[in-house]
Design a binder for these strands. Structure first.
Length: 187
DNA sequence: CAAGTGATTAGC
DNA sequence: CTAATCACTTGC
């Protein structure tokens, strides 16, 4: 499953003037398009916002919720099949000083341990929506090997309206990693 | 624990 | 056109 494979990868978003800001992906959630009530593309819904999800895998899908926060996703399937993986948390690797500046006085483990927070820390916004991950604005690199035994799964977060889909164990994170989001880290 | 926030969507 | 909703965070 792609969501699990993304764990351990390095997400890189360079500053316009050069310095890299990056982090290891430690938490993801899978959204499977039409069948998945929790997905924006449920029932084949295809609107201006969700259009990006129908792109070919390897495209970034960035959208805005709750009036203040962006969410960063990776589109994972072929064209016209709207599957995507939400990146929920990162472990900061490069550009930590820059992230601290953007997050204004938050402690280090609070820089990127949530989907909205990591977008602030990496300066991800809708200008990156539909960006090609093989391009030069944002991309993934091999990061760290994550043994299967370190991968934990569980129900997704923040989709209480999704009825029978709520309990699907489509959230993946690296067990015992201190940077998984607080709502999600089960002790 | 609850409110804030505004783009997006569905419903007239 | 207007109203309701939301893949979250932060501060009481």
């Amino acid at each position: 499953m792609v969501a699990r494979d993304l764990l351990g990868k390095l997400l890189v978003v360079p500053m316009p003037d050069g310095p890299r800001v990056s982090g290891i992906i430690v938490e993801t959630e899978a959204y499977r398009g039409p069948q998945d009530r929790a997905s924006h593309a449920y029932g084949g819904r295809r609107t201006k916002r969700t259009e990006t999800m129908y792109s070919i895998g390897g495209t970034a899908y960035v959208y805005f919720v709750y009036g203040m926060y962006n969410q960063f996703n990776v589109v994972t399937n072929v064209r016209d099949i709207p599957h995507a993986v939400l990146i929920r948390a990162l472990e900061p690797v490069e550009g930590i000083e820059i992230m601290r500046g953007r997050r204004h006085g938050q402690s280090d483990h609070n820089l990127t341990n949530g989907p909205g927070k990591l977008c602030i820390a990496l300066d991800i916004d809708r200008q990156l929506d539909a960006a090609d991950l093989a391009g030069d604005r944002v991309w993934l690199e091999e990061g760290r090997q994550v043994p299967r035994s370190k991968v934990a799964t569980g129900p997704r977060i923040g989709i209480d309206y999704a009825e029978e889909w709520i309990e699907k164990p489509w959230r993946f994170w690296i067990r015992d990693n201190p940077f998984v989001s607080r709502h999600s880290s089960k002790k």
